[in-house]
């Protein structure tokens, strides 16, 4: 975690993969019970973990921090669908590190949220997500500076998180 926060790209990607497994375990049962696609909630939690990684205090245990953010987002997303549910923090911590098989991980809410970005932001996000390009490569292809790509990418992610919050998902 510490390496990731210092900007270690590889450490961060590994960490995210680990966290995804943990978050899926927490989300799966609850989301199904509420009739939601668990992967939508997983992606929303991941986005929140990413944007709020500055609130992890160096040297403190990671699990309670992850659990707290996951709980907040799970409750949020259930509330948006009009379901009221109590999620005790201890439950979240308990299920955090259970190992379970991966699901294929396709979700729809994020796709909808992407639709609310402007064209440039969408281009940058797509180039990174689908083609796995680095900021430098994206910059050359879209004729932007590397700094501008980074700024656009970061703004896009904040906009995506806001779109998740704003849209009541009518399925």
């Amino acid at each position: 975690m510490e390496q990731s926060l210092q900007g270690d790209f590889c450490a961060y990607e590994q960490l995210l993969v680990l966290l995804t497994v943990a978050v899926r375990n927490v989300v799966r049962g609850r989301a199904r019970a509420a009739g939601l696609d668990p992967e939508d909630v997983v992606q929303e939690v991941l986005l929140a973990l990413h944007l709020k990684r500055n609130t992890w205090v160096t040297g403190t245990p990671v699990a309670p921090w992850v659990a707290a953010i996951a709980r907040n987002k799970i409750v949020d997303s259930l509330r948006r669908r009009g379901t009221r549910i109590e999620v005790p923090l201890d439950d979240v911590i308990e299920t955090l590190w259970i190992d379970e098989a991966e699901s294929e991980g396709q979700a729809h809410d994020l796709e909808r949220a992407l639709g609310r970005l402007n064209e440039r932001q969408r281009d940058v996000v797509r180039a990174v997500s689908l083609e796995g390009r680095t900021a430098q490569e994206v910059a050359t292809r879209l004729q932007m500076t590397e700094g501008a790509v980074r700024v656009t990418l970061h703004r896009s992610l904040r906009a995506l998180a806001a779109a998740f919050r704003a849209v009541p998902n009518e399925d």
Partner: peptide, 17 residues
């Protein structure tokens, strides 16, 4: 969007302190 794709995006955005 697949979760693996999202992770790629997040990692790309996480490349700074």
């Amino acid at each position: 969007m697949k979760t693996e794709e999202l992770i790629r995006v997040l990692a790309a955005d996480g490349a700074r302190p």
